[in-house]
């Protein structure tokens, strides 16, 4: 019998390694397409560097020196038998991955100062829990860089400004940070709920495949409009000019209070690192975003 805690830990170490070194296929495809399509010579140099960098990183080198703060999205089946072991296994995996890959120690105490040195500490790794039907466990490693996080915002709008006001908030934000969040970016937008709910929904949108569209046509239309508006700015890769400023805009919503129109805007750099695996109750592992290559 395999040790369940060890299986969860080993799986998570591989997720963190793959996330840091190999972009999900949809993100790489979108960046390569942007490179092929680009007409601006400066932008072409930037996208060429990104494509080359992706190739080098694949050998096992973190693609960006900012290997992010450690965030996981975890979906636990209500009948998954090892629920109590998950937090400890994820934390141990972070410590192990930090030393072995290596990852940059990015966990700093905001009160007394000091870097923990191993990417763990109070509330970090941060785990977003969701209980779902079934008996398996899905883990997504989502290490998030600081540069793009610094321009993520929550706006508490007056309901009277309507959806136009929502779109304007997202576009104005993009105009204010220009390329500083390492464009081309992916933007997640969460509308409604409350301040915390809006930004939580926004960040979850960054997990969606780049080529999908929201199932509700009204929401898909908002995604399309914001996407086209931001790409019309000409900000371009790294803010140095060009055709591609965003690779995708993803929107979702929750019901809102009559008096509130909260909008969360989560910004992701081009190094959109995420890696997902499913562990069954029998402890067999299936890697979703980064499949194990057949020998």
């Amino acid at each position: 019998m395999k040790d369940p805690a060890q299986v969860i830990q080993d799986t998570t170490v591989r997720l963190l390694r793959k996330a840091a070194t190999v972009l999900p296929a949809d993100v790489e495809k979108a960046l390569r397409a942007a490179y092929e399509r680009e007409t601006n010579a400066t932008a072409k140099t930037q996208l060429e560097a990104i494509v080359k960098n992706i190739g080098i990183a694949r050998e096992g080198i973190p693609m960006c020196q900012d290997t992010g703060i450690m965030i996981f999205y975890v979906k636990v089946g209500e009948k998954f038998p090892f629920m109590g072991m998950i937090r400890d296994a994820l934390t141990k995996a972070v410590v192990q991955a930090t030393a072995e890959i290596p990852l940059r120690p990015n966990a700093v105490n905001p009160i007394v100062g000091g870097n923990s040195g191993d990417n763990t500490g109070k509330k970090i790794p941060w785990i977003n829990w969701e209980i779902v039907p079934g008996d398996s466990l899905e883990i997504t490693a989502f290490p998030k860089g600081g540069g793009s996080e610094n321009v993520s915002i929550v706006g508490m709008l007056k309901p009277g400004v309507g959806l136009t006001g929502v779109k304007k908030l997202v576009v104005d934000n993009a105009l204010s940070y220009m390329g500083k969040a390492c464009a081309p970016n992916i933007i997640g937008v969460g509308i409604g709920g409350g301040a915390d709910i809006a930004i939580k929904i926004a960040k979850q949108q960054l997990l969606r495949p780049l080529d999908d569209h929201h199932p509700e046509p009204e929401v898909a239309e908002i995604e399309k409009e914001i996407f086209e508006a931001i790409n019309a700015t000409g900000i371009g890769p790294m803010g140095l000019g060009g055709d591609t400023t965003v690779l995708a805009v993803k929107v979702d919503y929750a019901m809102r209070h009559p008096a509130s129109l909260p909008v969360g805007v989560a910004v992701q750099c081009w190094a959109a690192r995420r890696s997902t695996a499913i562990i069954t109750k029998d402890l067999s592992v299936q890697y979703v975003t980064h499949p194990v290559e057949e020998k």
Binding site: T45, Q46, A49, I50, K52, N53, I56, A57, I61, P62, M63, C64, Q65, D66, G145, G147, G179, C182, P237, M238, L240, C269, W270, A271
Partner: peptide, 13 residues
């Protein structure tokens, strides 16, 4: 000079 943000692996080369 600007070096492309996020291209840590390329820089290390």
């Amino acid at each position: 000079c600007s070096f492309t943000g996020g291209c840590g692996a390329l820089a290390a080369k």
